[in-house]
Structure formats: structure tokens, C-alpha cells
Nucleic acid binder design. Structure first.
Length: 426
DNA sequence: TCTGGGGTCCTAGGACCC
DNA sequence: TCTGGGGTCCTAGGACCC
């Protein structure tokens, strides 16, 4: 059996840990740039504040009901996430925990006897809540896809399930699948849901009973096959070893306002490159390819929001590197290649790929003195910036004023990573 | 003039996730 | 007026090779 442990309204819960006065109040958290709503407390859901909807559109509703609103504070969420995952690892054994996202982890439960599954699920929930202040839901079932179904129902029926639900018999599984729309199945997105409804397949139960070969043809090949198998309690998506290293590393941002000055675009690209290089060094890797993209500001207003066209360019570096200045130079040159005069841009990004381990780089007998100096410099910068969880030290090419920087007007304090923002007990 | 079949590698793009 | 950011995997198609 497999469990998925999923934090309830994670970002909102993090904010509430340090604002106990908001315990039963409607709370929402906004994306970067205060663009859309990315986390809602139950109370906010009940007020029909839309998920992933643009903030400005929901603003009247938010103001009317006095919904407490926060800009995203990733320093805080990252740190809280680490606490939750550490708790799980301590309780269930490191080797049984697969961190799946900032607020979710799969757990291999094969070593737990069937009759204890429920107690263990409950214990997990209670311990995390006690140690971190974060509420979680636990879904347990034979496969990952089914455990997600269980988790969703646990969360939806908090009163009856107390946030822990086990699907361990065919009867329970079928009943759960009948209550679940295909749209809500893990692995069915917007496009497939639309297709499925056209074929009159509306519930997860109906999907489960579809033919495997049909799925191969119509639901993205091997992905569709796995999905059906998992719904039929056959393991097709295994537990994964903790992924240590990312295969690509990206840093991308919207600008606070559209930008048509190439100088600012270059500053932004330099800044994102520094951040991406930092992530690269943290996992002790180097990259052989660097790409950038910029997105034009777009005029048309279709029913469904779409970004404007994105223009990209990339180059293979002669030698894989993680040294910031060696990456910034080509990145900024790429801007010259794709920037069009008199055009407004609203977003830019840097993508590092072809990532390999630091020690896999071919040793060069003639590594120059400067390379070594650069490494030491990088180390020093990383240490300072990491301890502050912010870029206190940066390269001049990143600009100092940063007119293009994103808006973040409603951010809470970085309670857990800054001394001067510690929580005060009066 | 006629012009095969099988393989690999790479890239772009689509689908999905949170 | 204002719509996030960071990932994964898979597939199709082109280039190239013998």
C-alpha cells in the first residue's frame, strides 16, 4: 500500500502558524507579482474565491468579506515544508518517503500490517500537526493514483474522515471512483478531461473500465496505459528514489510592469542567471546549455487567458560551468540576439540544461588560477546569500535599482529565516 | 534512370503536476 | 490597468548514418 500525505491549503496554513488570530478566518495567498490566487483556506473556498483566478477580478469579493490576503513568502513556505518532510522521514524511515512537491509526499506503507494502516495514518497527521502546526490529509490505497483519490475524498469530507481515508477493498475503491469526476483524477488535465467528457466518460469509475489499448491510442500512449492500470489497483507508477539533482533549472519571472528597454531586460536576465547558477551549485552540478526567453506583452483578450508569444534562444557552452559570471556573459549576449526594438515585454526567464555532476567535468590540467579564485568567490557569495535566504550580494550586471522587479506588497515576515523578522512573543 | 530499410540522436512541443 | 513559477515525462519528426 501507498500513502500520500498532503498539507491542507499549505501556503495559507503556513501564514496562519504565525498568525493564530486568523485560525478560522478566510485567508488567501497570491502568486508572485500578486497576479493570481494560489492558496485558499476552507473559509475562503466557501466564499467562492476562485482558485488560480486573477487577483484583481476577485478583489471586490475579497474586500467585501474581509479576506486576509498575503503575497507569497517562499522563504517561509520552504522552511515549513522542510519541517513537515523531516517529521515524515523521522516517523516512517527516510527510505520510505518520496517528497513529491513542496506540500506532498508519497510513503511506501508495505512494511505496515494492514490492520495498523489507519492508526499509522492518524498518527502521522497528529504528529505533523503537533510539531509544525500544519494540518495534513492522508490517503492510503494500493497505487499512487488511488491514494490521490483517497486523499482528495479525505480532504473533502473532513468531518467524517478526520482527514484520513483508506481504500483497501474493491468495494471501497469502486465507490470512491464513482464519486470522483475524471477531471479530478491525477494525470487527467484540462485537455484530456474535455476529450473524455465528449466520449461520455465522466467518472473515474467509467475511466477505470476502459480498455488499455484504447487508452494507449487516445490518452497519450504509455501515460494513458499507466493511468488505467493504476485505477485498476495494478502498480504502474513506482515509488521513486529521492531525486537529488534536477535535470533542468529555470528561473523565470513576470516584470512588475512591461519593459521595452533592453538594459532592464539584460539586468533581469543577469539576475535570473545568478539565481539559477546558485541553484545549480547547491546541487553540486554544472550546466552545458543555457537558454533564455522573453515574452511579449499581449493585447488580445480571449476567453481563456494566454501568454503572448515567447521568443527563445540558447547556446551550448564550450565547458560546463556553474560559475555565475561565466553564465551571465552568454546569457546577456543572447538578449541581443532576440530583443526587438520598440517592443514591450512582460516576462523573461533563464533555463539551464544538460546538467551533470560537478565532478563529472573533465579535469583540465591547466585550470587557471582565476578559475579557482572564482570558485572560492562563488562559495563565499553562496554562504552569505543562503544564510539570509536572499541575495544580499549580487553582480553589478544585475542592476541596483531593478525597476523591473515584481510587486509584492502584502508579504508577511520571514519569521524563520531572518533574525530581524523573528516572531515576537509579548 | 531506377532509389530501401533500419537505426540513432536531437529538438521542439505537448501534456501533465503542484 | 492588473492572469505565477518551476518542474517531469513522452512523442513525433527531422537529420544523419550505413
Amino acid at each position: 500500500m501507498k500513502a500520500i500525505v498532503d498539507c491542507n491549503s499549505f501556503y495559507c496554513s503556513c501564514e496562519r502558524v504565525f498568525r493564530p488570530d486568523l485560525a478560522h478566518q478566510p485567508v488567501i495567498v497570491l502568486s508572485n507579482n500578486d497576479g493570481c490566487i494560489i492558496s485558499r483556506s476552507d473559509e475562503a473556498k466557501q466564499l467562492n474565491v476562485p482558485m488560480a483566478g486573477p487577483y484583481f477580478k476577485a478583489k471586490p469579493l475579497i474586500e467585501k468579506y474581509g479576506v486576509h490576503t498575503f503575497s507569497s513568502n517562499y522563504n517561509l513556505y520552504g522552511d515549513m515544508s522542510w519541517r513537515v518532510m523531516e517529521t515524515l522521514r523521522m516517523m516512517m524511515g527516510k527510505e520510505n518517503v518520496e517528497v513529491y512537491s513542496v506540500d506532498e509526499a508519497f510513503i511506501d506503507m508495505n512494511h505496515i500490517p494492514a490492520e495498523s494502516l489507519h492508526d499509522v495514518g492518524k498518527k502521522i497527521k497528529e504528529t505533523i500537526e503537533l510539531w509544525t502546526g500544519i494540518q495534513v490529509s492522508v490517503g492510503i490505497a494500493p497505487t499512487k493514483v488511488l491514494s490521490k483519490v483517497a486523499n482528495r475524498l479525505a480532504k473533502k469530507n473532513k468531518k467524517t474522515t478526520e482527514c484520513v481515508l483508506i481504500l483497501d477493498t474493491p468495494e471501497k475503491i469502486n465507490a470512491a471512483l464513482q464519486k470522483t469526476k475524471v477531471d479530478d483524477v491525477w494525470g487527467v488535465g484540462y485537455k484530456y478531461a474535455y476529450k473524455l467528457h465528449q466520449w461520455q466518460i465522466d467518472t473515474a469509475y467509467q475511466l477505470k473500465n476502459m480498455d488499455i489499448e484504447w487508452a494507449r491510442k487516445n490518452l497519450g500512449g504509455i501515460m494513458g496505459v499507466r493511468l488505467i492500470k493504476e485505477l485498476c489497483s495494478e502498480i504502474a507508477i513506482e515509488m521513486e528514489d529521492e531525486r537529488i539533482n534536477k535535470k533542468i533549472i529555470a528561473t523565470t519571472r513576470m516584470f512588475g510592469e512591461p519593459v521595452n528597454n533592453i538594459k532592464y531586460i539584460k539586468e533581469a536576465i543577469a539576475t535570473y542567471t545568478s539565481r539559477a547558477a546558485e541553484k545549480l551549485r547547491r546541487q553540486k552540478s554544472v550546466a552545458k546549455t543555457i537558454g533564455i526567453f522573453i515574452v511579449k506583452k499581449e493585447e488580445s483578450h480571449t476567453a481563456r487567458f494566454k501568454h503572448g508569444p515567447s521568443i527563445s534562444a540558447s547556446i551550448h557552452l564550450p565547458i560546463a560551468t556553474s560559475i555565475t559570471n561565466e553564465l551571465i556573459k552568454p546569457a546577456v549576449q543572447l538578449v541581443d540576439k532576440i530583443f526587438e526594438k520598440d517592443t514591450f515585454y512582460k516576462k523573461a526567464g533563464v533555463i539551464l540544461s544538460d546538467i551533470v555532476n560537478d565532478d563529472a567535468v573533465q579535469g583540465n590540467l591547466f585550470v587557471s588560477e582565476t578559475t579557482n579564485k572564482n570558485r572560492l568567490l562563488m562559495n563565499m557569495i553562496d554562504n552569505v546569500n543562503f544564510s539570509m535566504r536572499d541575495d544580499v550580494l549580487k553582480f553589478a550586471s544585475s542592476g541596483t535599482k531593478r525597476n523591473w522587479k515584481m510587486r509584492q506588497e502584502l508579504r508577511s515576515k520571514r519569521y524563520t529565516t531572518r533574525w530581524d523578522e523573528l516572531y515576537e512573543v509579548k
